[in-house]
Design a binder for these strands. Sequence first.
DNA 1: AAATTGGATTATGCCGATATAATGCATAAA
DNA 2: TTTATGCATTATATCGGCATAATCCAATTT
Lengths: 344, 344
Amino acid sequence: MKGKATSFDIAHRAGVSQSTVSRALSNSPLVNQETRDRIKQIAQELNYKVDKNASNLRKQRSNTVALLLFEDPSTDDSQINPFFISMLGSITKACSAANYDLLVSFQNLADDWHAEYEDTHKADGLILLGYGDYLDYEAKINQLQEQETHFVRWGAADPKYPGISVGSNNFQGGYMVTEHLISQGRTRFAFVGEAGTHAPEFLARFQGFTHALSQADLMDQFVGQFDAIFTVEAGLEAALELFAEGERPDAIVCASDLIALGVIQAMRQEGLRCPEDIAVTGFDNIPIAGFVEPALTTVQQDTKAAGITLVEHLLKHINNENTSDTLIPASLIIRDSSKPLTQD
Amino acid sequence: MKGKATSFDIAHRAGVSQSTVSRALSNSPLVNQETRDRIKQIAQELNYKVDKNASNLRKQRSNTVALLLFEDPSTDDSQINPFFISMLGSITKACSAANYDLLVSFQNLADDWHAEYEDTHKADGLILLGYGDYLDYEAKINQLQEQETHFVRWGAADPKYPGISVGSNNFQGGYMVTEHLISQGRTRFAFVGEAGTHAPEFLARFQGFTHALSQADLMDQFVGQFDAIFTVEAGLEAALELFAEGERPDAIVCASDLIALGVIQAMRQEGLRCPEDIAVTGFDNIPIAGFVEPALTTVQQDTKAAGITLVEHLLKHINNENTSDTLIPASLIIRDSSKPLTQD
DNA sequence: AAATTGGATTATGCCGATATAATGCATAAA
DNA sequence: TTTATGCATTATATCGGCATAATCCAATTT
């Protein structure tokens, strides 16, 4: 036979109508068990696969979701945030478990979003994933809602747009790691990482941090907060600035692992030991966190739960059900960089 | 108006036939410039987007490629090889530059490949990306070729299947970094990384390594090759084994950056300094390679060229043109871990 | 014997675009 | 005036499934 087999070819061989073939292959109880088996058998022999374009066109459903990944414009091509990779993995798995395919698209923040996947019926919905507040955030969300696009976003809940967000509990993570450092005997804290409204994740971590400090009555010894985006370089520079200012902390809480690595690097340059002189903690638990010197104490986001939840919520939206904003708890990974102060 | 607009709606408003709308929107010279502009205008007002399912069905083309990512079964979920991430990024970009969408699917090596994207017409071709020889490699390749699936694979050229491979020049990379170490005055070499047929990339690196050694007449001082898969842990263990065996090298060439980090970790445990006692080099130039202590000398694969070439070759296959196997040159990134031997 | 019921199957329309063939119409050539 | 030539547009068939309504037929009921 020429070309790929169609359901007509199978119908012909099986001596039934094409309709019956379609029904049989979708396991419809409307068709007799025997005929069903016979048809499936023939379909397999011909290596028949339903044409998704035809099927989707008729069903007006693609069983596909599109993942839009927003890159931080401040970093170059090769530097993809390791955290997103982990999310990508878990989202892919959650999709395939739900029998959905996944389209992936890296979005350049500067450009207009390339979010036509649902308009063109290539996907049934979108997952928006990025750090910080992607450019023109509100305008875009409004537009998506106006067009009745189905979507969920990764990030802190936004009271203006309820029911579309899933995010890590960054506040709790920042609180938890700070509390841990306090219990280790640290008292003079600094925070490295941007804490503005355009980096809401980092801001929440910072707020958890200060909350822990106030609870322990340590705010009067707070050394300060130093801006750094999420790269190693930024952490290094921020730390150098911190050391230049004079007042030396005995613990530095960083908004990400990469920043923490930069801070440790800066300490080395300044002849400071970690954790003996200053404890340092990160956030994300990237793959190498446990293998740097010293092994990094950090906060792990539950990317598996995150991916599953995002997909689950999106599928509910697609079925016109509502979901409520979800905060996924983070967990503390204790390693060497936060060892207790020793009296020496 | 209800629902999404179709080309009929536009035809109606523009007072032309639906055929003309279709032509106008695809910029066919068959339709008058004025009418074309008018139709486009109306289409924009109605926020009309062509239905890809209908379009693809008719055209028998999806303008989509599927990326199958094969994970190493020896690592857990969270550990995705950083090199692949970089490739994923460049492939995505190359696709969007060519106006193709990208479906991403993580394949579990143990299972049957889930490679029906072309059979179902969801994609026009496949890109296979994984380290080592994915399980049942030949059987699967045969099957794909039999079904006339369009595909390219990442990896060394295989004489049995010409024209489907694109890979880094691992031999040249291994040779280059070894030559560099020799020029720095190192003479007693060891290699850490698997060098068997089921890890062809690593094997090629090892072969480049030994080639450089023989050229410099240093093979009689070769300490040995020690197996390690691509994780930090594996590198650490292999190095400990190496040190236990007695004969100490003054340079260790590693098959990947993660392995190199493990080796450096092991040296630290043994009280050995890098690069003073032993120089260490990696492979891949992962994001943190420049920020560990000491900064890691490594070989960088040109992922950008790789992604572009893979996509380019696949698109040629889709258009029934042939391509020839391509080796992409790697480049040397010299940092501190390979500093020259000092006389002290 | 005629009418009813229900399970199994078939006939038909449609999803929304694109490509090919056909038509209309103005202008140029015979 | 008639035929021919092009350009612009329209009519129609088609891509390959799925869903609804229609039909067929055997087993019951009346």
